[in-house]
Simulated scan of single mutants.
Amino acid sequence: MIEVQSQLNKIESFLPKIHVTNEKVSKASVGWHLEHSLLILNGSLKGLTMTNPDNYNPKSSIKKFVFLNFGLIPRGKIKSPKQFIPLETPTKESVEKFLNLAKERLEAVKNLSAKSYITHPFLGDLDKKATLIFLRLHTNHHLKIVDDILKH
């Protein structure tokens, strides 16, 4: 949870650079990557609060094992569900709104049952701990892209 909070602080530090682009690294702007990450964070954190822990049904898979243990996400190879793609060009205000919501939702999941879960479209049911690992890895993936956009 501390790692995700730290990532939210890093996202906040990038707010002045949301319009920066670099086609050699990504077709999307810094703001797009930040807003996309926040949409995933907000959707997943809300999802944890909406599931019944009694219905948690974990299943093992190679994809789940590799991702949660090694954090490998190939760039440009996985298509995000439509609800997690920014609808318009992100603005400082839109990113700030999603950022503040993520901070609130992160705080709200602290006291949830360990068996609170989300159902990920590729990885299946992820309990609270695995969801936070997923969020940390996914956000880190996009923060690395942002770092690369800003380097070049």
Rank of each mutant, 00 (worst) to 15 (best):
V4S: 09
S6Q: 13
S6L: 11
Q7W: 12
L8Q: 04
N9A: 11
N9S: 14
I11V: 07
S13N: 11
P16E: 06
P16C: 12
I18Q: 00
V20A: 11
T21S: 03
V25G: 13
K27I: 02
V30P: 01
V30N: 01
H33G: 01
L38N: 00
L39S: 01
S44R: 15
G47A: 07
L48K: 12
L48Y: 07
T49H: 08
T51N: 12
D54H: 13
Y56W: 06
P58A: 06
S60T: 10
I62F: 14
K64P: 05
F70R: 13
G71M: 08
P74W: 04
P74Q: 11
R75A: 14
G76C: 09
G76S: 09
K79R: 15
Q83T: 03
T89H: 01
T89C: 00
E96I: 02
K97N: 04
L99A: 02
N100K: 15
L101F: 04
K103Y: 04
R105F: 02
N111P: 09
N111L: 12
L112F: 10
I118C: 05
H120Y: 08
H120L: 05
H120E: 09
G124Q: 05
L126I: 12
A130D: 11
L132F: 11
L143R: 06
D147F: 06
D148V: 03
I149V: 09
H152Y: 13
H152V: 10
